[in-house]
């Protein structure tokens, strides 16, 4: 079945545009970052679309001011610049302030996480964002694996009046959620494939890879589970424990640094907190930047995140 392919940002921005039509209390701010679907917002809502220029720090600060006055704000920029150029603005004016001001609705939309900007090199890669954003209290972290989730986020973002960071992939992705699965923001994850013995726990675009791996493994008689974490924070530990306890081995997959508090750290803490005796293997990027040129699949191959490399790891633990 050919799945419909779209970018997460286009799906999300389309839905935001519909909401802006219905509601007067939404602002959309961009740090000189566009999208095909953004043009509609730019032309239709001239007084509520603001281009702050190439100025991520001011993007966060202006968004804060608008949110303090009760507006729902979407703050849109390239992920590495949004999270790292403006990190202290996010700490002080978003995370810190939200502990006192309980209804600040700022939604940071970071586009191009992980190695999305494969050809642009390491300045444009965002492989630290999960680790550093997880460090901030009072911040919800959304990490969708397909455009359906990205679209669903918009309702959630309006309903939950708290700061959020949505980490969006830059490339078009096929849909994973076709209506057959329950998208539960209370849980924060979805067990896409129920398996035996081994479970792949992934987030973002790596969930797409995990599904490919599980598909191939099944052909070889290995029924591998796939669990997609789309809300890195808050995550329901109890439900996740229930989902993982039937497995003997958990393999985490992320397009980010490992051993620095990303998905690997999250799952490790869960297993530790719940005293779950499961073998844990962490796949991701080692402690070095990726200068190598080539498309994303090539970069995955170099870093053992391609389908074949992951299948090899599964085969080793399956025995």
């Amino acid at each position: 079945m050919a799945a419909e392919v779209k970018t997460m940002r286009d799906a999300m921005i389309n839905k935001i545009c519909q909401e802006m039509q219905k509601r007067e209390n939404i602002f959309f701010l961009s740090a000189d970052m566009g999208a095909p679907t953004l043009d509609e917002i730019r032309t239709k809502f001239k007084d509520r679309f603001v281009s702050v220029g190439i100025a991520e720090q001011n993007l966060i600060n202006v968004s804060t001011g608008l949110a303090l006055e009760g507006y729902i704000v979407y703050s849109y920029a390239i992920a590495p610049f949004l999270t790292m150029r403006a990190y202290e603005q996010i700490k002080n004016n978003v995370a810190l302030m939200a502990q006192i001001k309980r209804d600040m609705n700022i939604n940071l939309l970071g586009v191009g996480v992980g190695l999305s900007y494969d050809m642009s090199g390491p300045s444009h890669h965002a492989i630290e964002d999960m680790s550093i954003m997880r460090a901030l209290p009072n911040l919800i972290i959304f990490s969708p694996s397909d455009w359906v989730l990205a679209e669903k986020f918009v309702d959630y973002s309006i309903k939950i009046k708290r700061p959020k960071y949505a980490r969006l992939d830059g490339k078009p992705v096929p849909r994973i959620y076709d209506g057959g699965q329950k998208i539960d923001f209370q849980k924060g994850f979805c067990e896409l494939v129920a398996g035996e013995k081994v479970c792949l726990v992934a987030t973002g675009v790596m969930t797409q890879r995990a599904l490919e791996v599980a598909g191939d493994c099944l052909k070889n008689g290995m029924k591998v589970g796939v669990l997609d974490i789309f809300l890195l924070k808050p995550l329901n530990y109890d439900s996740m424990y229930e989902a993982l306890k039937k497995y003997e081995c958990v393999i985490t997959m992320e397009e980010g640094f490992i051993n620095k508090g990303g998905v690997d750290g999250l799952v490790s803490d869960l297993l530790n907190t719940k005293q779950l005796d499961v073998k844990l293997i962490n796949l991701g990027l080692k402690d070095r930047y990726v200068f190598e040129m080539g498309n994303r699949n090539y970069l995955h191959k170099l870093n053992y995140l391609d389908k074949e490399s992951v299948i090899k790891v599964v085969k080793e633990v399956w025995r």
């Binding site: 603001v50 600060n61 608008l66």
Partner: peptide
């Protein structure tokens, strides 16, 4: 930080 946040507040006051 103060002036940037103030810009957001100023904009909000005008729009509302």
């Amino acid at each position: 930080h103060g002036l940037g946040v103030a810009c957001g507040i100023a904009l909000a006051l005008k729009r509302s």
